[in-house]
Amino acid sequence: MSRSDSLVDANWVEAHRSDPNVVLVEVDEDTQAYDKGHIAGAVRIDWKDDLQDRVRRDFVNKPEFEALLSSRGIGNEHTVVFYGGNNNWFASYAYWYFKLYGHGDVKLLDGGRKRWELDSRELVTEVPSRPATSYVAQEQDRSIRAFRQEVEDAIGSVNLIDVRSPDEYAGRILAPAHLPQEQSQRPGHIPTAVNIPWSKAANDDGTFKSDDELRALYGEAGVDFGQDTIAYCRIGERSAHTWFVLHEILGQTSVRNYDGSWTEYGALVGVPISLGDNPGGPEGGVA
């Protein structure tokens, strides 16, 4: 993968406005943002109600995913272009999620909703109606999703990237600063993980930095591009943004997103945790 395969700009979106094979999908942390206005023709996917199992902590299963896409009028042959607010945070998560279930052609609108709004481009409130499809998903591609045992086994051996903010990494706070602080996990990070906040990969307007800047960002922080990588955050959404940068823009072949992330790891009994601003050794402790 490369930048040209996975990113489009606003002009591309405008040019494909009436292309029936292109489906624009808005995914926002603020699930009401779509109602305030969205890009003409865009459908909405709710990261929580549509993409999470209603009972257990996991994703919707394959038949549910197929039903969701069919009802939204998304076919296997369609090019799906995601966009959303906050540097495409949740849009990147949806991108990763669609790749997990094997959708062929997925792209992100660079800069997302923010750049679109800052450029004063048109937003509409009309909800499009798309004819239903009969979507067929693949089995989950586990090569891009990490589970807790793999993460424990990765301590000290593969690139672990904690993409939360420095204060969350060090254990000074437990959640991003626009959310109430939760108390059910121990603070800190997975031992040996380096801290590269997801937001460093984006410019202020939400567009991704250049390939050279991105390579320098991860390389200088200690990521070995010749090794496997696992990225995590609090619930796996910011790390999907980093997964997108490493796997889709920079073309790294083995990058997994640990969607259990800190809300799972920080609640496990008996696993090592590092506290403080440094990665720490494999045994954890105050680093």
């Binding site: 943002a33 906050n86 540097n87 923010k114 903010s165 204060d167 991003p176 600063a177 626009h178 937001s199």
Partner: peptide, 9 residues
């Protein structure tokens, strides 16, 4: 330090 922490619309 000028590091991004959060953003809201």
């Amino acid at each position: 330090t000028g590091e991004f922490t959060a953003e809201v619309p």
